[in-house]
Design a protein around this nucleic acid. Structure first.
Lengths: 336, 336
DNA sequence: AGTAAATGGTTAAACCTTTAATCAAAACTG
DNA sequence: CAGTTTTGATTAAAGGTTTAACCATTTACT
């Protein structure tokens, strides 16, 4: 059936310990023996069982990406997550690690971690105030948090510079003469990614001597449909706004669509800035001005950081802040 | 450290065998004892190790989704895959199975299957003529093929009715008066998804008494960029075409963008039909007429089929054909 | 030559479960 | 009451690998 280390040992006329030693480059084994064993391994296409290994060593070469529960659709809809996961997969592949994808529902069931002896966790966008967060910490296994802004020293975290992103997007609009700028956010909290971007938004306003108006901040615009609905809210605002900064590209797409259906043109009637620079942003009509964050790279970074943590390697910086960049395209224009 | 079956046994004052028995509902154990053990298990939050279990039983509650190598970007770009995987994840979750995501590169390295003792495989869009396909079969583990149209009885396969899809999209355009219809495909082969759709395209043409013209079939249009380039090819065609049927929504988005940049309007100058009905298709401008396939459901179906296979349950039909549907939106219009 | 050190291995226990085989006690039989 | 069946458990082996502790040769040193 399945070829085991025993088969190799028998074939090579040595003990299993010796085979194990050449497998792991440990112990003492002569060059010839090692070579012979290697040859037989290749010949018989032997792959050591991670199960048996893990049982002994407590490691499984398996990490898990946890995406907190989002209502169905939202998750699949946003390429952001997929690019991220793709980056993680890429980052682990070279190190012979595999990635398990696990969507944790409201029950916060993390039993798969113990079941599969997962070596480490990458957690995306979690609230430090949640039950899930506490459960994850209780696991006491190597973990990297992404896009979570958890205010606790010692944690491994990866972010893009969201404050800067919020600032750049807003500043760009201001530089085009806009003064009434709607900010469309997913969920407003006193921490997290959107909060940081809001800080950047405020900073840019303040720098330009513009007053911050909380009524211009529209919530629940994180999804396509959310952005679409935000269009109506935006139109019915008492003051006349000339620009919108939507904190996700898919939200921006929804918003533009909503405006379009109400006869408003982008950017003629309203300038729109998105956030993320997903693949589609270049291909929408009009193409989307947005804040670019290298999502793929972020995923890869998180993987690197996690593997370093798992292998007990020292890292210079546990808290990584990646750059963002303003991509000016066709959805924003100077005010007349 | 980690709580094991031994800890439970000690606490309950029984042997580990007894604990194992209540865990698996086997053997004979009195109601009281069983209850006491259950209580302690819950109390101590004990989860049996899949590693140890798998070592004994040869099953790991782990399946893997294999996406054949695609050039980077293409994979993350197409929400199709993600919806699919999301469906798979959903389909396995209830059965306490977990999903490993594995991108197989050109090296066709499937060693992770043996390493992790993966219980089953879901393979997306593979060519029956490839090395990878042969390697997968050689594994001799439960497998479901999706979107592969492998002409071999006994295999578990899931498809949408691609021939019908090709037919419906073409017929829709013909019904609007179009006679010169470009077909933009990913890769033309003598089998597979695109081939089936091509068959449908031809069928609709034949039915309408229109001649099939191979020059109207444009290749390499499966990605966004591919669709974008297809726009130029389309324009420079000797005959004047009035419609395009692009066999992926993202390709259609690219095409529309390409046309737009060359001053051509959709649907005024050219009608466009896409394929897949991904999330964005409703939000593009103009919204995209497309062939809807329930991708999420397809993923879930594949998962169900795989689990049935793994558990040795009888299935009535190994070869599942799911329906497709024409969604008429704004990117197609009657010819003047 | 006699001892010490290096070389190339082997043995056996451990990791955590499952399960077939076994056993003792209790509950039935007639 | 002696024998049989049922009940409720236990023991021990097995699954594939790693690794510390050993051991027998060979080589090096004075």
């Amino acid at each position: 059936m399945k070829v085991t280390i025993k088969d190799i040992a028998r074939e090579a006329g040595v003990s299993v310990a010796t085979v194990s030693n050449v497998l792991n480059g440990k112990g003492r084994v002569s060059a010839e023996t090692a070579e012979r064993i290697q040859r037989i391994i290749a010949e018989k296409n032997f792959v050591p069982s991670t199960l048996a290994r893990g049982l002994k060593n407590k490691n499984t070469q398996l990490i898990s990406v946890i995406v907190p529960y989002l209502k169905r659709g939202n998750f699949e809809e946003n390429p952001f997550f997929w690019q991220l996961i793709s980056g993680v997969e890429m980052g682990t592949k070279d190190h012979k690690f595999n990635v398990m994808l696990t969507r944790v529902e409201q029950d916060n069931d993390l039993s798969f971690v113990q079941m599969h002896n997962v070596d480490g966790l990458i957690v995306v966008g979690i609230d430090a105030d949640s039950e899930l967060y506490r459960s994850i910490l209780a696991l006491k296994i190597p973990t990297v948090f992404m896009d979570s802004y958890i205010d606790q020293p010692g944690l491994y975290q990866v972010h893009n510079d969201d404050l800067l992103g919020g600032y750049l997007g807003t500043k760009h609009l201001i530089s085009q003469g806009h003064t009434k700028i709607v900010l469309v956010v997913g969920k407003l909290a006193d921490r997290g990614v959107d909060f940081q971007r809001l800080l950047g938004y405020k900073k840019a306003l303040a720098e330009a001597g513009l007053a911050y108006d909380a009524r211009l901040v529209l919530e629940n615009g994180g999804s396509m449909l959310g952005g679409y609905h935000a269009a109506q809210k935006l139109i019915s605002l008492p003051e006349k706004v000339t620009a919108a900064f939507v904190l996700s590209d898919i939200g921006a797409m929804g918003l533009i669509k909503g405006l379009y259906e109400m006869g408003k043109e982008v950017p003629a009637d309203l300038s729109v800035v998105g956030y993320d620079d997903i693949f589609y942003s270049e291909y929408t009509i009009p193409s989307l001005t947005t804040i670019r964050q290298d999502i793929f790279k972020k995923g890869k970074m998180a993987a690197d950081l996690l593997l370093a943590q798992i292998n007990g390697e020292p890292v210079t910086e546990k808290n990584i802040l990646l750059p963002v960049e303003l991509k000016v395209r066709a959805s924003t224009a100077k005010i007349l």
